[in-house]
């Protein structure tokens, strides 16, 4: 599988480390405990489109948000995670 790193270009998946669902927001420090439990322990398991974190550990070390189809492994997009986090207000 190839993953397009926004900085380094398309690279073999072996250069990256998987970081899980990118759709989660780190809760506010004073958010209810259940929000924290959900953030750390609960995940959806979608069949199809999935936005997820990968880190390009053997390249630029950027965390990126990748769009991948969990069924076909077709990769349709990637953006720097810091950009996405800045847009969505990141987390507390």
């Amino acid at each position: 599988m190839r993953i397009p790193c926004p900085w380094c270009g398309e690279r073999d998946a072996g250069e990256f480390v998987y970081g899980g669902d990118a759709g989660l927001r780190r809760p506010a420090d004073d958010a209810p405990m259940q929000d924290w439990v959900d953030y750390v322990f609960y995940r959806d398991n979608p069949r199809g489109a999935h936005r997820e974190h990968w880190q390009h550990v053997q390249g630029c070390r950027a965390w990126i948000v990748v769009e991948r189809d969990t069924l076909t492994h077709a990769v349709t997009g990637s953006r720097p995670a810091s950009e996405v986090a800045a847009e969505t207000g990141g987390a507390a």
């Binding site: 970081g19 974190h53 880190q55 965390w63 720097p80 810091s82 986090a85 990141g90 987390a91």
Partner: peptide, 10 residues
């Protein structure tokens, strides 16, 4: 790096 880039980019 995860917390810096994905949680606290500011």
């Amino acid at each position: 790096e995860y917390h810096h880039q994905c949680c606290w980019p500011e």
